[in-house]
C-alpha cells in the first residue's frame, strides 16, 4: 500500500532522512517509533505529499506521490502533528468543508454522521472548534482524516496531550480502523506501539534502524529484567543482601523511600527470574516487600539494544573473515 524507496531529505546542511526505505502492506498497522527529532514527522509529511523528498520515491496504492499528487492524496487520510483545525468554525462546518475539499462522493450526511459517531464528537458538532478541549480537538483532527474513507491513514503522534482515558479510546479507535484500513502512526512512546501496532519501524537520526514485528521488539524489551522494589528494612543491609543474591546482576539504592521502606533498583541476569528468591530471602530476613514493580525498558534502552544488535549482526561476518 505504501512504498518508500531510498528517500533522503536535507534541510540545508541538516540531513533529516538518510536513505529510508520500507513498505507497508494492506491492512497493517505500522508504528513509527523514534525520539523527538528523529525524522518521523518528516517521513510522514513526505508520504502525504506535504513535503517532498530531496531524492527517492514514495508511492501510495501504487501511485507516485510526486508524479500524480492529486490521485495519491485521495488515498490518504492524514492527521498532522498539530491538527489542522480552523478555530472559528463549528465542528460540523469544518467536516463539511473537509468533505468538499477532498471531493468526496459518499452520501454526505450519512458519512459525516458515521465519522462523528466513531470519533465520539457528535455531541460537540455545533460548537466552535476554538472552544473545544485538547482531547476533543484531537478527535476532530482524526475525524478530518477519516473523511472520504481513504484506504490509508497516517497519524502523526495521535495521542499526544490526551489524558489516559482518552489515550485508551483513541488507541481502540485506531485498532478498529486497522481492521479495514492501512494505518501508519508515529509515536515516541513504546507501550503505545506495542498495544496497537503489528509492526514497528524504529527511526533514529534520520535512519531506519529496525523493522520488526511487534512481538519481537516486545520480547527483546522484556528479556532484560529490571525491577524497582520497596523493602521495609535497614537500607544498607538490604542492599548488601540483594547484591549477594544469586542471579542479581546489579542492585542499587535509589535513595528514594518513605515510612514504608526504601526503594532499590534491581536487575537480573538475562533469562533468570529472581522474584521468588528475592521474596524468600527478604521474608526470611524479616524485611517485607512493600512494592515490586517490573521496570519496562525505556525507549532509549530499546534503541541501544536494537542498534547494538544491529551492529553486532553487521560486524559478525567481518570478524569471522578477520580470523581466517
Amino acid at each position: 500500500m505504501i512504498e518508500v524507496r531510498n528517500v533522503f531529505k536535507h534541510y540545508g546542511n541538516v540531513t533529516a532522512l538518510d536513505d529510508v526505505s520500507f513498505t507497508v502492506n494492506e491492512g497493517e498497522i505500522v508504528g513509527f517509533l523514534g525520539p523527538n527529532g528523529a525524522g518521523k514527522s518528516t517521513m510522514m509529511n513526505i508520504v502525504t505529499g506535504y513535503l517532498s523528498s530531496t531524492s527517492g520515491e514514495a508511492s501510495v496504492c501504487g501511485i507516485d506521490v510526486l508524479e500524480n499528487p492529486d490521485e495519491a492524496k485521495k488515498k490518504i487520510g492524514f492527521l498532522p502533528e498539530q491538527p489542522p483545525l480552523y478555530r472559528e468554525m463549528k465542528v460540523s462546518e469544518y467536516l463539511n468543508f473537509v468533505y468538499e475539499l477532498k471531493k468526496c462522493t459518499l452520501n454526505r450526511k450519512a458519512h459525516l454522521d458515521e465519522i462523528m459517531a466513531v470519533t465520539k464528537i457528535a455531541g460537540v458538532k455545533d460548537r466552535l472548534i476554538g472552544n473545544l478541549s485538547k482531547g476533543y480537538r484531537q478527535r476532530v483532527g482524526i475525524a478530518q482524516a477519516l473523511v472520504g474513507n481513504p484506504p490509508v491513514m497516517i497519524f502523526d503522534e495521535p495521542t499526544v496531550g490526551l489524558d489516559p482515558k482518552q489515550i485508551i479510546e483513541i488507541r481502540n479507535l485506531i485498532r478498529n480502523l486497522g481492521k479495514n484500513h492501512t494505518v501508519v502512526l508515529s509515536t515516541h512512546i513504546l507501550p503505545e506501539v506495542q498495544s496497537v501496532c503489528d509492526r514497528i519501524l524504529i527511526i533514529n537520526e534520520g535512519r531506519l534502524i529496525a523493522d520488526e514485528k511487534t512481538e519481537n521488539v516486545a520480547r527483546a524489551a522484556a528479556s532484560d529484567r529490571k525491577y524497582t522494589v520497596k523493602v521495609a528494612g535497614p537500607r544498607r543491609d538490604v542492599l548488601r543482601e540483594l547484591r549477594a543474591l544469586g542471579g542479581v546482576r546489579f542492585a542499587e539504592d535509589t535513595g528514594d523511600g518513605d515510612a514504608d521502606g526504601a526503594v532499590f533498583a534491581v536487575e537480573a541476569e538475562r533469562g533468570i527470574d529472581i522474584r521468588k528468591q528475592m521474596f524468600n530471602m527478604l521474608a526470611a530476613k524479616g524485611w517485607p516487600i512493600m512494592e515490586l514493580t517490573p521496570r519496562g525498558m525505556s525507549l532509549e534502552e530499546v534503541f541501544v539494544m536494537i542498534t547494538d544488535e544491529d551492529e553486532r549482526r553487521r560486524n559478525a561476518p567481518e570478524r569471522r573473515a578477520g580470523k581466517e
Binding site: K73, P80, E81, L85, Q144
Partner: peptide
C-alpha cells in the same frame, strides 16, 4: 502559523 496549510496541501487540490 496555525499549520492548517497541512490540510490544504495534503488534499487533492492544486
Amino acid at each position: 502559523r496555525l499549520r492548517t496549510d497541512a490540510l490544504l496541501l495534503t488534499s487533492p487540490v492544486s
